[in-house]
Design a protein around this nucleic acid. Structure first.
Lengths: 252, 252
DNA sequence: CGGCCCTTTGACGGACGTCAAATAGCGTGG
DNA sequence: CCACGCTATTTGACGTCCGTCAAAGGGCCG
């Protein structure tokens, strides 16, 4: 019933200073740019949207529960988070990892509930836009439908890929594909440092994202390491043999 | 490159007579009604949209391949179809079953490719709308965004549920849930006859939808039958013990 | 009648889960 | 500084769910 984003329990704090989105690594992605342009270039006078509420949540914190009610739509500015669902008996499935520039839940643009749980992985900085205001802008600028549809289509594509992975791929393929996917998404954000990237996931995260157990993830990952596919250390991962990793992923 | 809907290879034939959507069981669902109203009540003079191309494809026919290029968006009027993806080595994952009133692929509203394969299960009657015309209507009637968002949200919700099923549920749960889901969707269309419903799926369909093998589907289904949960016969299924079936599905 | 697809059943095997224990890292508090 | 508690990782032994392979029977259709 209450909106848990920026409630005290999450440990999120409100930041006072405001930095323009234009400087953000995620600016070119998804909705961020579309909405920014809509508010700066076209709508005058500038709306309060230009200064959405900004928050910072510590690592490993739930910032949204499945049945929470929201008036706002959140965008990740910095850090990693996970969107997941938990069954009654405790089993958990991670539906997606959220990276800078990602909209936390596109359904919140039109509905007050996201139907899933959001937890931070690292410390996360995010911004909350009021749904009513985004909708108003959307109605006044139907050309925003096109970029919005790209977001929808991308979400659907990745949800379908996840289903294929979980339904029809082996543990090796799933894990290799997860690494490759994250690599591509980080590369699109200019967040790769050569062949290495931040990798703040613990093996439980990987397990819940791939439908496996942490124990099995451990054995597959050590196998990948022994075979020289990747190097893992210090919350980061290095792709040592990309073509072999792709073969393990059974890409195409 | 070519649009395979209504190509000869599919065996689809064009029907001459045109029946109004208002009489359709699916009229109340999804986009059908929204678009029909947009074209009848508001846009004048009546557009060619009012008479979209209508086709009938025989059972067990591919009517769309993963890389096909489309100018049209298809809606199912009658019959069952499946949307699926096939991996290089032949493994297949069914992403959704399409029932009357379903939009075949919502991504086709904005993009020329659906990224998945559509095959009929029964004989299927469907209608093709031109994407350009639907988009024009959408731009002229931004209030259509709201019902459209419902379609998107529903698709996302079901895709997420599928991922949870495949990632974290047992074979028994997956199969029971599939049956219950189909039951609910058919009930929403007024297509239940008491406790029994059409069930044209063969066990291979169920296997590919649940990430299992046909052999294992067979054993689980016979177990369900022996325990009096369901009765299967003649392309139809009867729910004999709903509460037990729900328990098997681990609903919540 | 023969061929094809679907279903069922059984024997067997493998991929992955479960349980357990050992180790390491890391922050907290005394 | 050490003691401690917690979490994460690794490894091994063992178990199980589900896949694979095979064979047999049934229904449908040419």
């Amino acid at each position: 019933m209450t909106t848990r984003f920026h409630s005290d329990e999450t440990g999120a704090r409100s930041d006072k200073k405001y930095v323009s989105c234009v400087a953000c690594v995620a600016y070119e992605l998804d909705q961020c740019r579309a909405f920014s342009e809509a508010t700066t270039d076209r709508v005058r006078p500038s709306l309060p949207l230009l200064q959405p509420a900004e928050y910072t949540a510590p690592a490993r914190r739930k910032i949204c529960h499945e049945r929470d009610w929201h008036e706002t739509v959140s965008f990740i500015c910095q850090g990693w988070a996970a969107s997941s669902v938990r069954l009654a008996d405790g089993r958990r499935q991670i539906l997606s990892f959220l990276l800078p520039g990602d909209i936390v839940s596109a359904t919140l643009l039109f509905e007050p509930t996201s139907h899933c749980m959001i937890e931070t992985i690292t410390e996360v900085r995010y911004r909350n836009f009021k749904r009513a205001e985004l909708q108003k802008i959307l109605f006044e600028h139907p050309d925003l439908i096109q970029p919005l549809s790209k977001t929808w289509i991308g979400e659907k594509l990745r949800a379908d890929q996840l289903a294929i992975d979980l339904g029809r791929r082996t543990a090796h393929e799933r894990i290799a594909r997860l690494i490759l996917n994250l690599m591509e998404r980080l590369a699109a954000r200019g967040m790769m440092r050569g062949e290495t990237m931040d990798f703040p996931l613990c093996e439980t995260h990987i397990a819940d994202a791939t439908g496996l157990t942490p124990v099995h993830v451990s054995t597959v990952l050590t196998e990948f390491r022994r075979n020289g596919l990747v190097g893992i250390s210090e919350r980061s991962i290095t792709i040592l043999n990309l073509s072999e990793l792709r073969r393990a992923a059974n890409e195409r």
